[in-house]
Design a protein around this nucleic acid. Sequence first.
DNA 1: ATGAGTGCAAACAGTTTGCACAACC
DNA 2: GGTTGTGCAAACTGTTTGCACTCAT
Lengths: 143, 143
Amino acid sequence: MTVETTDFAKALREAGLRVTQQRMVVLSVLTGTSDHPNADELLTRARAVDETVSLATVYRTLSALEDAGLIRKLSLENEPSRYEIAPALDHDHLVDIDTGEVIELPSEDVHRLRVELAARLGYEVISQHTLIRARKITTPPQG
Amino acid sequence: MTVETTDFAKALREAGLRVTQQRMVVLSVLTGTSDHPNADELLTRARAVDETVSLATVYRTLSALEDAGLIRKLSLENEPSRYEIAPALDHDHLVDIDTGEVIELPSEDVHRLRVELAARLGYEVISQHTLIRARKITTPPQG
DNA sequence: ATGAGTGCAAACAGTTTGCACAACC
DNA sequence: GGTTGTGCAAACTGTTTGCACTCAT
């Protein structure tokens, strides 16, 4: 919708970034999904909207958007980084090591604890993220 | 000391791995340091002991040791993985984003909480690690 | 002696970059 | 119109792998 389009443009402008077709597309793709796509997946989805987008631009855009605080980059283990729009409430991620599915976990309270802990050590927390690797329990806990 | 050497050999053997000069060296280097070296740094330190060690072998050794549960791999952001011997009590890491220094933080209680949370979602936690990016506070909090 | 481990160099994956052209302000 | 962004291809970094040889068991 035009409303959303305007929102993206506004967000970009407020971040001091030029409003380009490519950035709009990347932002809209990320906004319109609840999963956590990586650069390659973003390229594919972006190209479904605008055929001309290149992988280099996707990376440059992601980097710019991250610096602007509009999106968050998830550095997982042994696989390409994934991205999500910067969440209002901070959360961590559980990765299903069998399927690769990523689940968001609430973590405000734990994060608050860590901020205090870090402060006691003389540090200001810039970011924190917990990555949990887990496996779905198949056998019901029985007797 | 010979005692240590024997320990390394024993640990390797118990893990079902052949005892090679290279694996002994990598294990001893990792045991003898409190920082968290990456593969390149490990190569340099290993070569100080055994000139013939190659980078490929360092990687293959690290991978084998990790699978055996003898060491832990730390996947940081935008930089090569770092390694530490598998800690008795689990902990998280705070990275000073200015100096790169890595500080270990206790986290058993928080980890326990997450295990419960994951269990409620039907997941068994395989591993969890929190990466905190922080900056040393220079200006005292005043007005 | 046989199979696992090694060194080397080449391959690989993800990401970044130099350059010429295009598009935003 | 000038500067910032883009596409393309080439470069780069961290890591993995094929092969011939070596060594632990």
